[in-house]
Simulated assay, not measured.
Amino acid sequence: MSETTHPADASLQGFHETVLDGLPEAVIVAAPDGLITFVNAATETLLGYGAGEVVGKAISVLVPPQPGRRADPVKWLARWATEPDLEQSRFLDLTARRRDGREMPVEVRVREGRIGDRQRYFITVRDNTARRQEQVALKDSNLRAARILMVAEDAIVSIDADQKIIIFNLAAEQMFGYRAEEVLGQPLTMLIPPQARATHTGYVESFRDSKQASRMMSERSEVRGCRRSGESFPLEATITKVMAAGALTYTAHLRDVTERNRARDKLQESERRIRAVFDHAAEAIALLSPDGAIVEINRAGEALTTSDHPLIGAPLWEAPWLGVDLAVGPIAAEGLQAAIRTAASGTVTWMAVELAKDGKPLPIDVRLTPIADAQGRVVYVLVEGRFDA
């Protein structure tokens, strides 16, 4: 510490000087008029000023007027120094000016006290550069995350521990028909059909008590949402819970699956119709893999066999056909295999097969048609057998 300590504060020398010089924070003492009466050794380390350069100078040398704040530093610090609430005795974010002219973010705490009969402001200053950078980085990160959430394709809805809505992105606005400002702070149940609200509330509470961090909400039962119009619609939903800063939040990623379900139902209905035609056709029809294994066979085809032995997966020529002695002799079996190989190579093939029914010959005209995929590869062989019952 410099020997130029202001005479008015000479009582700080000795023991107190030793203690103050050992502190890592800069300690500055100022009179009510804003003149500096004392600085400790850490002030020079932090701000670059020695005691001889600032003692007797205005505090604004070290803490210049803050942008956007009308009050000068002395009035501004005085206001905080005399604040009766001890909770207000916290560090404030300000900007200090170093001796080299560079400004640096600092944390400043000021308290009012007396040295003898003289009023003084005791100011503690900490370098806040790292924390300010962390705050800026966190703010930028939160801003990026918020923008990603807002433009995400999925509807994203977050709720707090009381199931009140705290995040509602653009996709959610489009999905439910509400603007974000209309739902923020409102209960989640406004987005759920009335008949499902009690169940859903219990479901969230159950998820809260579970060890799972996330869950597909449709695992147990269908999830439905409720638009502003009152329309109920199906949802695919994943819910995640996060504990941050002691607060529990839930975030749901939602997709309206109305059109997907319609397409699924339409496909299923089409498959039912095709299956009905396939099973009730008078002709015997079988679908084979390219190597001749039976993939599907209709009722008329099954009626040409002699047992309940499973047909699916068996080679067509090994099925227990009626009149097995007539149909599956070496010549017939070899001929059927050759016809299947020809069809599997991409050529439509015809052949005649003779079975026996009720002791009478049953001639069948067989057509083998290759079925190719979009790349032209044969993936199935369709076998159609025409006969006179």
Rank of each mutant, 00 (worst) to 15 (best):
T4L: 11
T4D: 11
A8T: 09
A8E: 12
D9F: 12
A10K: 12
S11W: 07
F15D: 08
T18R: 15
V19H: 04
L20Q: 07
D21P: 06
D21E: 12
G22E: 11
E25L: 11
V27C: 09
A31Q: 09
L35Q: 11
T43D: 03
T43E: 07
T43C: 13
E44H: 11
V54F: 06
L62N: 03
V63E: 01
R69W: 13
V74K: 01
V74I: 14
W76H: 14
R79Q: 13
R79L: 12
A81N: 05
E83T: 13
D93G: 09
G101C: 07
V108P: 01
V110T: 04
E112Q: 15
I115R: 12
G116H: 10
G116N: 10
Q119D: 15
Q119I: 12
R120Q: 11
Y121M: 15
T124Q: 14
V125T: 01
D127E: 11
T129W: 12
R131E: 13
R132P: 09
E134N: 11
Q135P: 02
L138R: 09
L143C: 03
R147E: 11
L149F: 13
A155H: 03
S158Y: 01
D162P: 02
K164H: 13
K164V: 02
I166Y: 05
N169T: 07
N169M: 04
A171P: 06
A171K: 05
A172R: 02
E173C: 09
E173W: 06
F176E: 00
F176T: 00
P187C: 08
L191C: 08
L191F: 08
I192E: 04
R197Y: 06
S206A: 13
S210P: 03
Q212E: 15
A213I: 13
R220Q: 15
E222V: 10
E222H: 07
V223G: 00
C226P: 02
T238Y: 06
I239M: 11
T240S: 12
K241S: 06
M243D: 14
A245L: 14
L248H: 04
D256N: 14
T258I: 07
E269K: 13
R272S: 11
R272F: 01
A284V: 04
D291K: 05
G292D: 00
A293S: 13
N298L: 08
G301W: 00
A314K: 09
W317E: 08
A319N: 01
W321M: 05
L322K: 08
G323W: 02
G323E: 03
G323N: 04
I331W: 09
A332H: 05
R341Q: 11
R341C: 01
R341F: 00
A343D: 01
S345V: 01
V348Y: 08
W350I: 00
M351Y: 10
V353E: 10
E354G: 06
A356E: 15
G359D: 05
T369S: 15
D373P: 04
V378E: 04
V381P: 00
G385M: 06
G385S: 07
G385R: 01
